[in-house]
Simulated assay, not measured.
Amino acid sequence: MHLTDRRVVVTGGAGLIGSHLAARLVDDNDVIVADDCSKGDPDRVPDGATLVEADVTDDDDVARVVTEDTEVVFHLAAHTDTNHADPRRLFEENTEMTYNLLERAAEVDVSGFVFTSSSTVYGEAPRPTPEDYAPLEPISEYGASKLADEGLVSTYAHSHGIRSWVFRFANIVGPHQRGNVVPDFIEKLLDDPETLTILGDGRQEKSYLHVEDCVDAICHVVDGADAPLNTYNLGSRTTTSVTRIADIVSEEMSLDPTYAYTGGDRGWTGDVPRMRLSIEKLAGLGWEPPESSDDAVRRAARQLIDELA
Protein backbone atom coordinates (compact mmCIF):
# COMPACT_ATOMS: atom_id res chain seq x y z
CA MET A 1 0.00 0.00 0.00
CA HIS A 2 1.57 3.26 -1.09
CA LEU A 3 1.34 5.93 1.60
CA THR A 4 0.61 8.84 -0.72
CA ASP A 5 -2.54 10.95 -1.09
CA ARG A 6 -4.41 9.04 1.59
CA ARG A 7 -6.48 10.05 4.58
CA VAL A 8 -4.80 8.41 7.55
CA VAL A 9 -5.57 8.37 11.26
CA VAL A 10 -2.72 8.02 13.76
CA THR A 11 -3.92 7.14 17.26
CA GLY A 12 -1.42 8.12 19.92
CA GLY A 13 -0.04 10.59 17.40
CA ALA A 14 1.14 13.04 20.07
CA GLY A 15 3.44 10.43 21.60
CA LEU A 16 7.01 9.42 20.82
CA ILE A 17 6.52 7.14 17.81
CA GLY A 18 3.15 8.55 16.74
CA SER A 19 4.39 12.13 16.43
CA HIS A 20 7.40 11.07 14.38
CA LEU A 21 5.16 8.90 12.19
CA ALA A 22 2.71 11.77 11.67
CA ALA A 23 5.61 14.04 10.69
CA ARG A 24 6.79 11.44 8.16
CA LEU A 25 3.32 11.08 6.61
CA VAL A 26 2.02 14.64 6.66
CA ASP A 27 3.76 15.94 3.53
CA ASP A 28 2.03 13.42 1.25
CA ASN A 29 -1.19 12.57 3.10
CA ASP A 30 -4.13 14.03 5.00
CA VAL A 31 -3.16 13.13 8.57
CA ILE A 32 -5.57 13.07 11.52
CA VAL A 33 -3.91 12.63 14.93
CA ALA A 34 -6.18 11.15 17.60
CA ASP A 35 -4.79 11.43 21.14
CA ASP A 36 -6.32 12.00 24.56
CA CYS A 37 -3.11 13.86 25.50
CA SER A 38 -2.87 12.02 28.83
CA LYS A 39 0.76 11.22 27.97
CA GLY A 40 1.23 12.75 24.54
CA ASP A 41 2.15 16.39 24.02
CA PRO A 42 0.01 18.38 21.56
CA ASP A 43 3.08 20.46 20.70
CA ARG A 44 4.66 17.38 19.11
CA VAL A 45 1.90 17.09 16.50
CA PRO A 46 3.47 18.31 13.24
CA ASP A 47 2.25 21.32 11.30
CA GLY A 48 -0.24 20.22 8.67
CA ALA A 49 -1.71 17.41 10.74
CA THR A 50 -5.10 17.82 12.43
CA LEU A 51 -5.18 17.02 16.15
CA VAL A 52 -8.43 15.60 17.52
CA GLU A 53 -8.46 15.07 21.28
CA ALA A 54 -10.13 11.69 21.53
CA ASP A 55 -10.26 8.69 23.83
CA VAL A 56 -10.40 5.59 21.64
CA THR A 57 -11.90 3.52 24.45
CA ASP A 58 -15.02 5.59 23.66
CA ASP A 59 -17.11 4.50 20.66
CA ASP A 60 -18.32 8.02 19.92
CA ASP A 61 -14.77 9.38 19.85
CA VAL A 62 -13.70 6.57 17.55
CA ALA A 63 -16.55 7.39 15.17
CA ARG A 64 -15.47 11.05 15.15
CA VAL A 65 -11.93 10.28 14.03
CA VAL A 66 -12.39 7.18 11.83
CA THR A 67 -14.80 8.45 9.20
CA GLU A 68 -16.11 7.11 5.90
CA ASP A 69 -13.20 8.64 3.99
CA THR A 70 -10.48 7.17 6.25
CA GLU A 71 -8.21 4.84 4.29
CA VAL A 72 -5.56 3.74 6.79
CA VAL A 73 -5.53 3.58 10.58
CA PHE A 74 -2.18 3.54 12.39
CA HIS A 75 -3.01 2.38 15.91
CA LEU A 76 -0.28 3.40 18.36
CA ALA A 77 -2.38 4.49 21.37
CA ALA A 78 -1.90 2.21 24.38
CA HIS A 79 -0.94 1.97 27.99
CA THR A 80 2.73 1.03 27.58
CA ASP A 81 4.04 0.60 31.12
CA THR A 82 5.01 -3.06 31.61
CA ASN A 83 4.89 -2.38 35.37
CA HIS A 84 1.54 -0.54 35.38
CA ALA A 85 -0.03 0.22 38.76
CA ASP A 86 -3.37 -1.21 37.58
CA PRO A 87 -2.59 -4.12 35.26
CA ARG A 88 -6.23 -5.14 34.83
CA ARG A 89 -7.09 -1.65 33.58
CA LEU A 90 -4.08 -1.76 31.25
CA PHE A 91 -5.22 -5.07 29.71
CA GLU A 92 -8.88 -4.15 29.41
CA GLU A 93 -8.36 -0.67 27.98
CA ASN A 94 -5.63 -1.70 25.53
CA THR A 95 -7.81 -4.42 24.05
CA GLU A 96 -10.90 -2.17 24.12
CA MET A 97 -9.08 0.49 22.08
CA THR A 98 -8.05 -2.05 19.46
CA TYR A 99 -11.46 -3.71 19.25
CA ASN A 100 -13.25 -0.35 18.95
CA LEU A 101 -10.99 0.77 16.13
CA LEU A 102 -11.25 -2.51 14.22
CA GLU A 103 -15.05 -2.58 14.50
CA ARG A 104 -15.23 0.96 13.18
CA ALA A 105 -12.70 0.23 10.45
CA ALA A 106 -14.84 -2.66 9.23
CA GLU A 107 -17.99 -0.52 9.42
CA VAL A 108 -16.59 2.23 7.16
CA ASP A 109 -14.47 -0.03 4.90
CA VAL A 110 -11.01 1.14 5.95
CA SER A 111 -8.56 -0.59 3.64
CA GLY A 112 -5.50 -0.76 5.89
CA PHE A 113 -4.82 -1.19 9.63
CA VAL A 114 -1.36 -0.83 11.16
CA PHE A 115 -0.86 -2.04 14.73
CA THR A 116 2.16 -1.47 16.95
CA SER A 117 2.76 -4.56 19.06
CA SER A 118 5.80 -5.43 21.16
CA SER A 119 8.60 -7.92 21.65
CA THR A 120 6.93 -8.69 25.00
CA VAL A 121 4.49 -11.05 23.21
CA TYR A 122 7.37 -13.57 22.97
CA GLY A 123 8.11 -13.68 26.70
CA GLU A 124 11.51 -15.16 27.51
CA ALA A 125 12.17 -16.72 24.11
CA PRO A 126 15.43 -17.94 22.53
CA ARG A 127 17.43 -15.19 20.78
CA PRO A 128 17.30 -13.96 18.09
CA THR A 129 13.55 -14.53 18.08
CA PRO A 130 11.84 -14.90 14.68
CA GLU A 131 8.24 -13.91 13.94
CA ASP A 132 7.14 -17.54 13.67
CA TYR A 133 8.47 -18.53 17.11
CA ALA A 134 5.95 -20.47 19.18
CA PRO A 135 4.48 -20.74 21.69
CA LEU A 136 4.05 -17.07 22.52
CA GLU A 137 4.19 -16.84 26.31
CA PRO A 138 4.21 -13.22 27.57
CA ILE A 139 5.14 -12.71 31.23
CA SER A 140 3.43 -9.32 31.82
CA GLU A 141 -0.12 -8.04 31.49
CA TYR A 142 1.23 -5.56 28.95
CA GLY A 143 2.62 -8.38 26.80
CA ALA A 144 -0.62 -10.31 27.24
CA SER A 145 -2.65 -7.30 26.07
CA LYS A 146 -0.50 -6.93 22.96
CA LEU A 147 -0.91 -10.62 22.16
CA ALA A 148 -4.69 -10.34 22.58
CA ASP A 149 -4.66 -7.28 20.32
CA GLU A 150 -2.74 -9.22 17.69
CA GLY A 151 -5.47 -11.86 17.79
CA LEU A 152 -8.10 -9.22 17.10
CA VAL A 153 -6.08 -7.74 14.23
CA SER A 154 -5.66 -11.23 12.74
CA THR A 155 -9.40 -11.86 12.94
CA TYR A 156 -10.29 -8.64 11.14
CA ALA A 157 -7.59 -9.21 8.53
CA HIS A 158 -8.74 -12.73 7.66
CA SER A 159 -12.49 -12.49 8.25
CA HIS A 160 -13.32 -8.85 7.49
CA GLY A 161 -10.94 -8.03 4.65
CA ILE A 162 -8.86 -5.34 6.39
CA ARG A 163 -5.28 -5.68 5.19
CA SER A 164 -3.15 -5.36 8.32
CA TRP A 165 0.41 -4.89 9.45
CA VAL A 166 1.62 -5.86 12.95
CA PHE A 167 4.97 -4.58 14.19
CA ARG A 168 6.68 -6.22 17.15
CA PHE A 169 9.03 -3.56 18.46
CA ALA A 170 12.32 -3.81 20.22
CA ASN A 171 13.02 -0.89 22.59
CA ILE A 172 12.43 2.38 20.75
CA VAL A 173 14.35 5.46 21.91
CA GLY A 174 14.44 9.09 20.86
CA PRO A 175 13.74 12.73 21.68
CA HIS A 176 10.84 13.76 23.97
CA GLN A 177 10.78 10.27 25.52
CA ARG A 178 10.06 9.84 29.21
CA GLY A 179 9.74 6.76 31.42
CA ASN A 180 12.45 4.83 29.56
CA VAL A 181 15.88 3.85 30.88
CA VAL A 182 17.73 6.55 28.88
CA PRO A 183 15.79 9.63 30.12
CA ASP A 184 15.53 8.01 33.55
CA PHE A 185 19.33 7.85 33.85
CA ILE A 186 19.71 11.42 32.58
CA GLU A 187 17.20 12.75 35.11
CA LYS A 188 18.85 10.82 37.95
CA LEU A 189 22.30 12.15 37.05
CA LEU A 190 21.02 15.71 36.78
CA ASP A 191 19.67 15.31 40.31
CA ASP A 192 22.77 13.49 41.67
CA PRO A 193 25.89 13.42 39.44
CA GLU A 194 27.80 11.25 41.91
CA THR A 195 25.65 8.10 42.19
CA LEU A 196 23.39 6.34 39.68
CA THR A 197 20.86 3.77 40.90
CA ILE A 198 20.36 0.94 38.38
CA LEU A 199 17.44 -1.47 38.66
CA GLY A 200 18.47 -5.13 38.69
CA ASP A 201 22.05 -6.25 38.14
CA GLY A 202 22.72 -4.11 35.06
CA ARG A 203 23.22 -7.16 32.86
CA GLN A 204 19.76 -6.97 31.32
CA GLU A 205 20.49 -6.77 27.60
CA LYS A 206 18.11 -5.67 24.86
CA SER A 207 17.95 -4.31 21.34
CA TYR A 208 17.43 -0.57 20.87
CA LEU A 209 16.23 1.23 17.74
CA HIS A 210 16.01 4.99 17.25
CA VAL A 211 12.48 6.28 16.67
CA GLU A 212 13.37 7.88 13.32
CA ASP A 213 14.61 4.53 12.03
CA CYS A 214 11.56 2.79 13.49
CA VAL A 215 9.24 5.06 11.50
CA ASP A 216 11.30 4.54 8.36
CA ALA A 217 10.98 0.77 8.77
CA ILE A 218 7.20 0.96 9.35
CA CYS A 219 6.64 2.94 6.17
CA HIS A 220 8.95 0.65 4.20
CA VAL A 221 7.04 -2.47 5.27
CA VAL A 222 3.57 -0.97 4.70
CA ASP A 223 4.68 0.04 1.21
CA GLY A 224 6.28 -3.32 0.44
CA ALA A 225 4.30 -6.11 2.17
CA ASP A 226 0.80 -6.86 0.90
CA ALA A 227 -0.41 -10.12 2.47
CA PRO A 228 -3.76 -10.01 4.29
CA LEU A 229 -1.77 -10.01 7.57
CA ASN A 230 1.89 -8.91 7.69
CA THR A 231 3.80 -9.43 10.95
CA TYR A 232 7.31 -8.00 11.28
CA ASN A 233 9.87 -7.60 14.03
CA LEU A 234 11.50 -4.16 14.20
CA GLY A 235 14.83 -3.91 15.96
CA SER A 236 18.58 -4.01 15.47
CA ARG A 237 21.02 -6.88 15.08
CA THR A 238 22.88 -5.90 18.24
CA THR A 239 22.00 -5.40 21.90
CA THR A 240 22.97 -3.04 24.70
CA SER A 241 23.13 -3.84 28.41
CA VAL A 242 21.69 -1.56 31.07
CA THR A 243 25.17 -0.93 32.45
CA ARG A 244 26.37 0.00 28.95
CA ILE A 245 23.49 2.49 28.68
CA ALA A 246 24.63 3.98 31.98
CA ASP A 247 28.15 4.23 30.55
CA ILE A 248 26.92 5.96 27.38
CA VAL A 249 24.75 8.45 29.27
CA SER A 250 27.56 9.19 31.72
CA GLU A 251 30.04 9.72 28.88
CA GLU A 252 27.68 12.09 27.08
CA MET A 253 27.16 14.07 30.30
CA SER A 254 30.92 14.06 31.07
CA LEU A 255 30.29 12.36 34.42
CA ASP A 256 31.81 9.40 36.24
CA PRO A 257 29.20 8.29 38.79
CA THR A 258 29.30 5.28 41.09
CA TYR A 259 26.72 2.68 40.08
CA ALA A 260 24.37 1.34 42.78
CA TYR A 261 22.56 -1.83 41.67
CA THR A 262 19.28 -2.85 43.29
CA GLY A 263 20.02 -6.53 42.57
CA GLY A 264 18.27 -9.40 40.85
CA ASP A 265 18.33 -10.41 37.20
CA ARG A 266 15.47 -8.12 36.10
CA GLY A 267 14.34 -4.58 36.86
CA TRP A 268 10.73 -5.40 37.86
CA THR A 269 8.16 -8.16 37.76
CA GLY A 270 7.36 -8.89 34.11
CA ASP A 271 10.65 -7.49 32.82
CA VAL A 272 12.24 -9.67 30.12
CA PRO A 273 15.94 -9.43 31.01
CA ARG A 274 17.32 -10.37 27.60
CA MET A 275 15.77 -9.71 24.20
CA ARG A 276 16.98 -9.67 20.63
CA LEU A 277 14.59 -10.03 17.73
CA SER A 278 15.42 -11.67 14.44
CA ILE A 279 15.12 -9.09 11.67
CA GLU A 280 15.82 -11.44 8.76
CA LYS A 281 12.26 -11.10 7.49
CA LEU A 282 12.61 -7.30 7.56
CA ALA A 283 15.98 -7.48 5.82
CA GLY A 284 14.44 -9.73 3.17
CA LEU A 285 12.08 -6.87 2.34
CA GLY A 286 15.06 -4.58 1.84
CA TRP A 287 15.36 -2.67 5.14
CA GLU A 288 18.31 -2.80 7.52
CA PRO A 289 18.88 -0.69 10.66
CA PRO A 290 21.45 2.00 9.80
CA GLU A 291 23.17 1.90 13.19
CA SER A 292 23.94 -0.42 16.09
CA SER A 293 21.91 -0.62 19.27
CA ASP A 294 24.67 1.28 21.13
CA ASP A 295 24.65 4.05 18.52
CA ALA A 296 20.87 4.37 18.71
CA VAL A 297 21.12 4.77 22.48
CA ARG A 298 23.88 7.35 22.12
CA ARG A 299 21.95 9.39 19.54
CA ALA A 300 18.86 9.38 21.77
CA ALA A 301 20.94 10.25 24.84
CA ARG A 302 22.42 13.32 23.13
CA GLN A 303 18.96 14.52 22.06
CA LEU A 304 17.46 13.94 25.50
CA ILE A 305 20.35 15.60 27.33
CA ASP A 306 19.79 18.70 25.21
CA GLU A 307 16.11 18.67 26.22
CA LEU A 308 16.44 17.84 29.88
CA ALA A 309 19.56 19.79 30.76
Rank of each mutant, 00 (worst) to 15 (best):
L3I: 14
D5A: 14
R6F: 05
R24N: 10
V26C: 00
D27E: 09
V33W: 03
S38Y: 04
P42M: 10
P46Y: 03
A49E: 07
D55E: 11
D61T: 07
V62S: 01
V66S: 07
E68Q: 01
P87T: 10
R88V: 14
F91D: 04
F91K: 04
M97D: 00
N100M: 03
F115V: 07
T129E: 05
L136H: 09
S140E: 09
A144R: 11
S145G: 03
E150I: 06
G151P: 01
G151Y: 07
L152Q: 11
S154H: 12
S159Y: 14
S159A: 11
H160D: 06
G161R: 13
I162G: 00
F167T: 05
N171K: 12
V182G: 00
F185N: 03
D192N: 15
T195I: 14
K206S: 04
E212A: 15
E212S: 15
A217G: 07
A225F: 04
L229I: 12
L229E: 08
S236M: 14
T239K: 10
T240G: 00
V242S: 09
T243C: 04
A246E: 00
S254E: 15
D265Y: 13
R266A: 12
W268V: 05
G270C: 11
D271R: 14
V272Q: 04
L277R: 02
L282M: 10
L285Y: 11
E291N: 13
A300Q: 08
D306G: 15
E307I: 09
